[in-house]
Amino acid sequence: MTETVSLALDERFRAAAAAEGLLDVAYDVLPDTPVGALLVGVTDHGVCRISFDPEPEHHLELLARLHGPRVLRSSKPVDRVRLELDEYFAGKRQHFDVEPDVRVMPEFNRRVLEQLARVEYGTTTTYGSLAELAGNRGAARAVGTVMNRNPVPIVLACHRVVGANGNLTGYAGGLERKVQLLRLEGALL
C-alpha cells in the first residue's frame, strides 16, 4: 500500500491545529508580492516574523526557539496580515492594524521599534533621531543594528529610516526593496 497524505487531508489538519489554538507560530509563504515572496509568521499576539527569505527551512529552528516548538504552516491565521499587506502594496493602506509581536526582542530593541512604529507613512527619519527618541542619544549605530534585525519589516517600517546625510544606507531585504517601498509611499521620486 503506497498511501500518502492527500493535500485535502493535510490542509484539514493544518486548519484544525490552528482552529484549536494549538500553535505557537502559524506561518505561510506569500509567493507573489511586489517585493517578491515573503514568509509571514503569526502568534496569538500578532505578527512575529516577516522575511524576504521565503524558505521555511531557514526559519523553523529560530521560530521554535523564540516562540515555542509548535511551529506549523497554516494559512488561515495569516489571512489578516496577508490582506493588510495586499492593501498596503495596492496603496490602499497607510497603517497596519495587525499588532507586531516583538515580545522576544531585547528591551533596547523593543524601545527603538516602538519609536519606529510612530514614523508616519510617506516620511523618513534618521538613525540618530530614532536613537534620541529611544532615550539613547548617540546610539545611531546600535539603532542601525536593531533595524537590521527587525523581525517584522514592512509592518514595522524600518525602510523609513535613512542616514543623516540623506543616504539610504542599508536594508536587510536589499537596498532595491527599500527604494521600492519608499517610492510606493511617495517618500522617494
Binding site: 498511501e3 500518502t4 523553523l60 521560530l63 521554535a64 516548538p69 509548535r70 506549523l72
Partner: peptide
C-alpha cells in the same frame, strides 16, 4: 533537540497514515 512541529509532522505523517 525537539524539532519544530512542522519538521516532525513532515517526517512522520506518511508512515502514520499508512
Amino acid at each position: 533537540p525537539i524539532p519544530a512541529f512542522e519538521r516532525f509532522y513532515e517526517e512522520h505523517r506518511t508512515e502514520v497514515l499508512r
